[in-house]
Design a binder for these strands. Structure first.
Lengths: 111, 111
DNA sequence: CGTCAATATTGACATACATCGATACCAGGA
DNA sequence: TCCTGGTATCGATGTATGTCAATATTGACG
């Protein structure tokens, strides 16, 4: 029943299936890091797409390290990225955030 | 402004503070594992408290390993546990689930 | 007490991960 | 066509993590 784009009822509703647990844990691993959580938040809190160069100054980390973290967020489907000339811009994919939010929802009543 | 029980606005609302990112990443690490996600779900989906002995048969893992995972969930504030005679029972702490759910909320409109 | 069943702790091990410096790749401009 | 600046990849390294077998702890019950 669960596919990529619409996976699993809230944790508290019914025991999550093994495969779904693997899939959601993959996404959760991507956000289970202070640096990536901040990167994601910086990108998500903007109205416009975010240039990587705007993110770097906020961290005491090397450019390769930030690039590495962005790749992990991208592979988890949490952000999208695109090169525009010299710069690379990123944006949030809200559907993936929604999946996480729904996963932890506790109100058993719903649609 | 943010304390333990009510930390940080949704990621997408404003850039998360460094300390909050560390704190939330700590909790997220606890759920970023397929086994712990299933444990949490099994416990959360029940009406009554869950005996550890009821959880073991669902996994192809040793008892010490399950015990280890439960400890991590406990230390993250996701579940509570209590010994009653021979058995140890666990229950979910919904406030912590709510914090996670709220963290990923995308609708900018709210209370 | 002494035993037994349920759970926790310890120590060891292999694997995964965050980070860096060095370097490669790309696109724009002289 | 060659530089230059922004970004990605690579290789190395130290640390964290998931797992187990062995053992300790806890509490119930003879």
């Amino acid at each position: 029943m669960s596919n990529q784009s619409d996976c699993c009822a809230p944790l508290a509703r019914e025991p999550i299936a093994k495969d779904d647990a693997v899939e959601m844990a993959r996404i959760l691993k991507a956000v289970a890091d202070p640096v990536r959580l901040r990167l994601l938040s910086l990108i998500a809190a903007r109205d416009a797409d975010t240039c990587v160069c705007d993110l770097l100054p906020d961290f005491d980390l090397s450019q390769p390290t930030i690039s590495h973290h962005l790749k992990i967020l991208r592979e988890a489907g949490l952000i999208g990225s695109e090169r525009r000339g010299t710069w690379v811009y990123s944006w949030v994919i809200p559907e993936t955030l929604d999946r996480l939010s729904a996963l932890f929802a506790t109100s058993k009543a719903e649609v």
